[in-house]
Design a protein around this nucleic acid. Structure first.
Lengths: 254, 254
DNA sequence: AGACAATTAATGTCTATACATTAAAGCTGA
DNA sequence: TCAGCTTTAATGTATAGACATTAATTGTCT
């Protein structure tokens, strides 16, 4: 490659972080060590580190050094990160009720499953999120056991797989699809709604590099959940401040 | 302020861009001119400009200079920027049908209108977006005439106010609320749907600095519209690639 | 006039150095 | 012991200069 040196340094460290070789919280070499490693001036490594810090991948502390940042919920502009946290933060009691949890091979004919699984197996997790014992959303999730073998040891009989994944598996790409759909019989039954009720539907796939991690489909009770995102355009794009549960009379058109 | 010099330079230029004093396409001073203006070294102004470039606010071209970037749709992670463009891009014919267009004072009791209008008036625009003559969404929009007096001259009898605003009025903050609601009688009638059908509801407010620009509420036909956002976490957050019209059988839970 | 080459004005990268700032770590004394 | 001071190792900011790279401009030759 003929990339500028500071870019090469940056992407080497970035790769180490994203691959998991450098785990969240780990300390990375000091600028002086990096100068020696790459035989360059301090400004050059500083530029690389500044860029990583600006992207939120690392935290830098004077006298202490630079550390791999723990993945911050707020950096994910459209993720619906941690229902558990959102619900408890509002003073409600959160519960995840596991309905199904099986290891399966990807279905032939379901391209997205095959693409996600690669040559390995999938963990299928289905369940319902409750706030104060009122159902808030149903979730059906597939996790690649190739990408995340550790998840096999997790029970998820009370906490949700989403929260666990967010904490332990960094992703590099995500695609989110948002729509409004009527509740079918199964969803309606699980959410305790009349069939046909409007539900917010969210489907999200995440990858780490080329490797698929998870595919999740969630149906939220339309009258109880809004997704809210705030952001500033110019300053750091990562300023989403809130994603909140419960809407009021949002449907009123004026 | 005791901000570092490169930050002060950055924010001064940024303010000039966001306020409209420096318009898109305008050329800004060369690094040498800025060195003289701020009596500092070239690396310092370079740092400021690099930061602006990284944020997508300016484009830099060797030999030519640095220019204010034209606002890019893609840098807005959750904006639903230009329905017109999305529809035509899919090979369909787009039409905006204006239903109402009045100047009004903010209603007492509607806090959001008062907050938006400040001491001035509001332009209320209501209409329907069509793709190939099939209604896709209804929209009710308020625009602050204080912030955007130029909009009074626009007709919007065929093109939508959203497209116009995106092009001519840069914003600094946005808040988007997304939900799923049943169509009420009025919405159902305008969208040619049975009442109660699931609709994707989007409400967005945007500001430039402290000044409110617009508040828009849109109801999309649930069975015809999905919002899709892709992004990478680490690399530039601004990599949303698509927001697409039309869903298929997304409601199937597996 | 038009193709091509040379000039040059801008940004891009990098070095080497200096001093400022912060906070961890160690030290000292009541 | 522990509060408070001092040291010090790290990042943060800035300077001044060198050379590289790119592409707009200008000049030259046909």
């Amino acid at each position: 490659m003929t990339l500028p040196l500071h870019e090469r340094i940056r992407s080497k460290i970035e790769a180490a972080i994203l691959s998991g070789a450098l785990r969240p919280g780990a300390r990375l070499p000091t600028e002086h060590e990096l100068m020696r490693e790459y035989d360059c001036a301090r400004m050059t490594v500083s530029k690389a580190l500044s860029s990583l810090a600006a992207a939120g991948l690392i935290d830098r502390r004077k006298r202490a050094g630079s550390f791999v940042a723990r993945p911050k919920v707020h950096s994910m502009v459209l993720d619906v990160p941690d229902l558990e946290q959102e619900v408890t933060q509002r003073g409600q009691r959160y519960r995840f009720e596991l309905a199904k949890r099986i290891v399966k091979r990807p279905d032939i004919g379901h391209d997205e499953e095959i693409q996600l699984a690669g040559s390995g197996d999938l963990l299928l997790i289905e369940g319902v999120h409750f706030a104060d014992d009122v159902p808030l959303a149903v979730e059906a999730r597939l996790v690649s056991l190739t990408a995340v073998p550790e998840i096999a040891a997790q029970a998820f009989d009370r906490s949700s797989p989403g929260a666990w994944l967010i904490r332990y598996v960094p992703w590099t790409e995500a695609e989110t699809r948002i729509g409004a759909v009527p509740a079918n019989r199964e969803v309606a039954a699980r959410l305790n709604l009349p069939p046909g009720s409007a539900c917010l539907f969210i489907e999200r796939r995440t990858w780490r590099g080329d490797e698929g991690i998870t595919l999740v489909r969630q149906h939220f009770v339309g009258s109880a959940y809004d997704l809210i995102a705030r952001f500033g355009s110019a300053r750091s794009m990562a300023e989403v401040k809130k994603q909140s549960v419960q809407n009021g009379d949002a449907s009123a058109q004026e």
